[in-house]
Simulated assay, not measured.
Amino acid sequence: MDTSQLLINALLFVFLPLWGVVGFFDWCCHRATQIESTSGLKESLMHSVMGIQVGIPILMCLLFQVNVLVLLVCLGAWLLHEAVAHWDVHYAAPRRFISIWEMHAHSYLATLPFYMLAMIFIINWPVVLDLVQFNWAGQMSLTRVDNPHGGEGYLAFYLTFMAILCGLPYLEENLRCLRQALRQRGRAA
């Protein structure tokens, strides 16, 4: 097995699942601090936005050949994720208790996307060189991969895993926060 395949396997079977596990742990911390009664819907929506910001490049790298366009999307999404993560903590810190466990979760949630991006850059180094040398001709379209990474069933497994571990919990958090916001608005009226 060559180095690129080892890095791809590390991404597929270590880093991507770990990102989901830590996301679930972070959701547990939010639930324990009753986010719906403290920082509320605004913070909860930021969490969903950050998940989408990392989810889009993950899907693009799983479904399409990595070219300059895909790398630009990955880089842009990572930068936006960092900005929203900073805004999230800045917003939440004065409104609710952030435990040491949640801070540890945030450490992973902030660094894992960077490490995944770095690994994608290493695996696709010739494309990175094209990116920085502005050799973008013919590399600004999406081309499906012939052989899906991780085999035929990986994408379905990973999407199911993430839906159960992160999608549904964060949807529940958003709904819980929305219900609380509507209750508070009803009391104020």
Results as ranks from 00 to 15, higher is better:
28 C>K: 11
91 Y>W: 14
111 T>H: 14
51 G>Y: 11
101 W>R: 15
18 L>N: 01
9 N>V: 12
52 I>T: 13
110 A>Y: 14
70 V>Y: 00
95 R>Q: 12
28 C>Y: 07
39 S>I: 06
102 E>L: 08
112 L>G: 04
57 P>D: 04
102 E>N: 09
37 S>G: 06
54 V>Y: 06
12 L>K: 09
101 W>F: 14
95 R>A: 03
68 V>H: 01
28 C>S: 09
82 E>Y: 07
29 C>W: 04
97 F>E: 14
75 L>K: 02
11 L>S: 03
102 E>P: 07
91 Y>A: 11
20 G>S: 15
43 E>M: 09
55 G>C: 07
12 L>P: 06
79 L>A: 11
59 L>G: 11
86 H>N: 10
72 L>W: 06
108 Y>S: 10
92 A>F: 06
80 L>K: 03
49 V>H: 02
71 L>Y: 00
82 E>P: 00
109 L>C: 07
110 A>F: 13
66 V>Q: 01
89 V>S: 09
11 L>R: 01
81 H>T: 08
29 C>M: 12
38 T>Y: 04
22 V>Q: 03
102 E>A: 08
53 Q>D: 05
40 G>L: 02
40 G>F: 03
86 H>D: 06
76 G>M: 05
56 I>C: 01
32 A>W: 08
93 A>M: 12
33 T>C: 04
63 L>V: 01
32 A>P: 04
85 A>D: 10
37 S>C: 08
51 G>E: 04
66 V>S: 02
32 A>H: 08
9 N>W: 12
24 F>W: 15
69 L>E: 06
43 E>Q: 13
19 W>L: 12
110 A>S: 15
18 L>K: 01
18 L>G: 02
23 G>Q: 05
77 A>C: 13
36 E>F: 04
99 S>G: 07
47 H>V: 10
63 L>W: 02
40 G>I: 05
23 G>R: 01
102 E>Y: 05
101 W>L: 13
98 I>H: 05
4 S>H: 13
8 I>M: 07
20 G>V: 08
100 I>Y: 09
50 M>A: 03
80 L>P: 00
94 P>W: 13
41 L>N: 11
19 W>R: 04
24 F>L: 09
34 Q>G: 02
80 L>H: 01
100 I>G: 06
36 E>A: 12
7 L>G: 10
55 G>W: 03
82 E>A: 08
67 N>Q: 07
29 C>H: 07
103 M>T: 13
26 D>I: 00
6 L>I: 14
43 E>H: 05
91 Y>H: 15
